[in-house]
């Protein structure tokens, strides 16, 4: 099980950068794909809250009226959870 979490957290590292890049370049389609993939998968890796945050972001992206400010909030919520997950991995490494 630890291998799976490690894999997921490593993937998150790349994904967080990709999400940042998509926001910077205002690439909504790419952002939606990244959120969508996280939505379905995160729970399976043991991070259901990330899944919920990703779902919220995806829903927001589906409505055209979503302001960029509102989007930024959702992205930030998601990224915060991702960083927490990444941090927990490094913490557990330290404590070993």
């Amino acid at each position: 099980m630890r291998d799976i979490v490690t894999f997921f957290v490593n993937d998150l590292n790349d994904r967080v950068s990709a999400i940042g890049a998509a926001v910077d370049s205002d690439d909504r389609a790419r952002l939606r794909t990244l959120a969508h993939q996280l939505k379905g998968a995160a729970g399976g890796y043991g991070f259901p809250t990330i899944g919920v945050a990703a779902a919220t972001l995806e829903r927001e992206l589906l409505s055209d009226e979503a302001s960029m400010a509102a989007l930024h909030d959702k992205v930030e919520d998601l990224l915060q959870l991702c960083r927490a997950a990444m941090g927990s991995k490094y913490d557990s490494k330290k404590s070993r």
Binding site: I4, D11, Q37, G40, A41, G44
Partner: peptide, 13 residues
């Protein structure tokens, strides 16, 4: 499935 994360998860599990 359009999420490669799901593919990896299935492959491992």
């Amino acid at each position: 499935d359009d999420s490669d994360l799901i593919h990896k998860l299935l492959r491992i599990r």
